[in-house]
């Protein structure tokens, strides 16, 4: 889902926001709020934490607007900030609560519970939620957000080959999870 820009493009809005026009940043928030929240929700798997991460991402972006390089993609930049905010939070969660490792599958609902869900979308969401964090994020960015390989590689700070591999494995796991229902 690339942000459909009606009116000024993202670069112009960033320039206007830097110049002190608060409504320009408001428009950017309006354009990316949903996508950023979605990425955070997929990564964190907790609506409250996703909300906090999304807010934190926009806050950090706002504070460092002047470091945004003109000509680069705002979406890549803000996605990267959001992803790193999620990673920080996952790291803290691991340190303080000894909760899940980001790379590990969640103790969420099992295949039997997923199978009970008749709704295909819900089943697919549940299957995505079962994926390890690195696959979940790639599949979220690629399929749900419509990002390109190169952009995903920039957001996640990974080589493009790794992104492709993660995507392939994510799809394999998804298909396996959905066919076992």
């Amino acid at each position: 889902m690339s942000a459909v820009a009606t009116g000024p493009d993202d670069g112009q809005l960033v320039a206007a926001a830097i110049a002190g026009r608060s409504e320009a940043f408001g428009t950017l928030v309006e354009r990316y709020e949903r996508a950023i929240y979605h990425l955070c929700l997929r990564t964190m798997r907790d609506p409250e934490e996703a909300r906090d991460c999304a807010q934190e991402a926009f806050f950090k972006a706002f504070r460092s607007l002047r470091t945004f390089k003109p000509g680069s993609k705002f979406s890549t930049w803000i996605f990267s900030i959001a992803y790193h905010a999620c990673c920080d939070r996952l790291g803290r969660r691991k340190r303080y609560t000894d909760d899940e490792l980001p790379e590990r599958a969640d103790p969420g609902p099992g295949p039997a519970q997923i199978a009970e869900r008749n709704d295909e979308a819900q089943a697919l969401r549940a299957a995505i939620s079962e994926l390890p964090e690195k696959y979940r994020t790639v599949i979220t960015l690629y399929h749900l957000q419509g990002r390109q390989y190169e952009e995903i590689a920039q957001v996640l700070d990974l080589p493009m080959g790794t992104v492709k591999t993660h995507l392939f494995r994510a799809k394999e796991l998804l298909r396996k999870a959905l066919t076992t229902q």
């Binding site: 940043f25 949903r34 697919l124």
Partner: peptide, 23 residues
């Protein structure tokens, strides 16, 4: 199926909270 999967709606008040914390 993935492309047809709709995005979750952000919680109400998120945008307001973001704007309160920023601009």
């Amino acid at each position: 199926a993935l492309f047809a999967l709709p995005l979750e709606e952000p919680p109400p008040g998120l945008r307001r909270a973001i704007l309160e914390a920023t601009v």
